[in-house]
């Protein structure tokens, strides 16, 4: 094998065909409200952690759907379970319970 002074760049495209939806299905079963998210970002705007960390419930909701578990794990660590996001959600989603179940699911499936 030769070295060329560069390496082949990774594809940025989300391959949704290959997405692992196991964790999403696990969470959706425990808290079906996850389906109701309209990605408005009200949750993120009010989140105490989001002001300082990479923490966005809206993104978490997307990572979960797209099967991007690595991003999800990183993002979710900053949650302090204060429940402010649940308070503001216009669709009445129990966001707090979703984060709780994501954590449980990650442990269960040893992601």
């Amino acid at each position: 094998m030769k070295t060329f002074g560069y390496t082949i760049q990774n594809d940025r495209q989300i391959d949704f065909d290959a997405a692992d939806k196991k964790l999403y299905r696990y969470v959706a079963e425990k808290e079906p409200d996850i389906n109701l998210c309209i990605f408005c970002g009200t949750c993120t705007a009010t989140c105490s952690a989001a002001e300082f960390k990479n923490m966005s419930f809206r993104k978490i909701s997307l990572f979960l759907r797209r099967g991007l578990t690595e991003n999800l794990k990183r993002e979710i660590e900053s949650c302090m379970f204060c429940g402010k996001c649940t308070l503001v959600c216009p669709r009445g989603i129990n966001t707090r319970n979703i984060i709780f179940n994501i954590r449980k699911g990650i442990e269960e499936y040893e992601f």
Binding site: F4, G5, Y6, T7, I8, Q9, N10, D11
Partner: peptide, 14 residues
């Protein structure tokens, strides 16, 4: 630029 060629190869590889 040589350092960018990984992007170029990636296009062909796709």
């Amino acid at each position: 630029v040589q350092a960018n060629r990984g992007y170029s190869v990636a296009c062909s590889k796709k």
